[in-house]
Simulated assay, not measured.
Amino acid sequence: MTERRAVLSSSTFEEQIGYARAVVDGDWVHVSGTTGFDYATMTISDDVVEQAEQCLRNIEVALAEAGCTFADVVRVRYLLPDRADFEPCWLVLRRCFGDVRPAATMLMCGLADPRMKIEIEVDARRRIPPHGGATSNHSEAPVVPVGAYEPPYYVAVFTTVRAQDQSGFSETNARMEDLVKDVPGYLGMEHAQTPGGLGITVSYFRDAEALTEWRTNTEHRAAQKRGRAEWYQSYTLHVAKVERSHGFTREPGPTAG
């Protein structure tokens, strides 16, 4: 069955009007028209370039929750009440889309709030790797595994299926990724997500003490509790001690002249 789920943000408009920040439908991700409001404070700048930057930050969060990035965007629509405001935004837009070159359309139209000077809507297609394997959530970077650490060490493998309401997940997840770096003995982390919606996070720790410190961290435990209550349809945690580890990286071959 094709996956269909909603990605929600902290925007009050979504609740008031009845829509999602984005909808994942199979491999496709459709991000709603997104304006320059900072959804954490529901404030908006008077400057159109700053609004464009905030639009893109909001879109980036939605794409990440859907399992993709700006590199996966195939179409962009720009909506502005004043055509003169479009060109000042080009540099900001080019930073996100200059290498991707999605199809794009600019439309002049009125927006819902007179403070809004630009609205951006995108469609993306999640990449399916060969043989149906997992796809990285960070596809703008080279896809490489973490290094082979010197054993013994510990791994925590967290597999998840998300619930429909993901309000606040991205912010909390980013906070957890920063917080775990402060744990002595933390080695690294990698993520993957299948096109069907199964998420996999593997965390590496030098010893059991480091793993225990992270497991019992007060802020981490609060996030776990919220995850069970709101964000996960189901999850499984596997913890293991690694006794053997090795890796391989193919050297780049000669390029054609």
Score class of each variant (00 low, 15 high):
residue 6 A to W: 06
residue 92 V to K: 08
residue 209 E to D: 15
residue 62 A to P: 02
residue 129 P to R: 02
residue 100 V to G: 04
residue 50 E to R: 14
residue 81 P to G: 04
residue 174 A to W: 10
residue 252 P to T: 03
residue 87 E to R: 03
residue 214 W to N: 12
residue 197 G to H: 09
residue 240 A to L: 09
residue 220 H to I: 08
residue 239 V to N: 01
residue 105 T to E: 15
residue 236 T to Y: 00
residue 203 S to I: 12
residue 82 D to W: 01
residue 241 K to L: 15
residue 165 D to H: 12
residue 131 H to G: 09
residue 125 R to S: 08
residue 201 T to R: 05
residue 17 I to A: 12
residue 195 P to A: 04
residue 18 G to Y: 11
residue 229 A to I: 00
residue 141 A to I: 00
residue 3 E to D: 09
residue 31 V to T: 07
residue 19 Y to V: 12
residue 44 I to N: 04
residue 41 T to V: 08
residue 147 G to H: 00
residue 221 R to T: 14
residue 4 R to C: 05
residue 38 D to K: 09
residue 132 G to E: 10
residue 185 G to W: 06
residue 257 G to C: 07
residue 102 P to E: 10
residue 63 L to N: 01
residue 9 S to N: 08
residue 245 S to F: 06
residue 192 A to M: 00
residue 76 V to D: 04
residue 44 I to A: 01
residue 168 G to M: 11
residue 94 R to W: 07
residue 174 A to H: 11
residue 146 V to G: 00
residue 72 D to F: 00
residue 185 G to R: 07
residue 23 V to F: 12
residue 119 E to R: 02
residue 56 L to N: 00
residue 26 G to W: 11
residue 197 G to L: 12
residue 199 G to P: 05
residue 93 L to S: 01
residue 131 H to A: 14
residue 165 D to P: 07
residue 131 H to T: 13
residue 29 V to Q: 02
residue 162 R to I: 01
residue 153 Y to E: 03
residue 169 F to A: 12
residue 145 P to F: 03
residue 43 T to R: 12
residue 42 M to Q: 15
residue 178 D to A: 14
residue 168 G to P: 06
residue 114 P to Q: 07
residue 57 R to M: 12
residue 98 G to A: 04
residue 34 T to A: 07
residue 41 T to E: 03
residue 235 Y to D: 06
residue 131 H to R: 14
residue 209 E to L: 14
residue 30 H to D: 12
residue 42 M to F: 10
residue 210 A to K: 09
residue 198 L to A: 11
residue 33 G to R: 13
residue 119 E to N: 05
residue 237 L to N: 00
residue 102 P to C: 12
residue 227 G to V: 01
residue 184 P to F: 00
residue 83 R to F: 02
residue 256 A to N: 11
residue 63 L to E: 02
residue 156 A to T: 00
residue 39 Y to F: 14
residue 222 A to E: 13
residue 214 W to H: 11
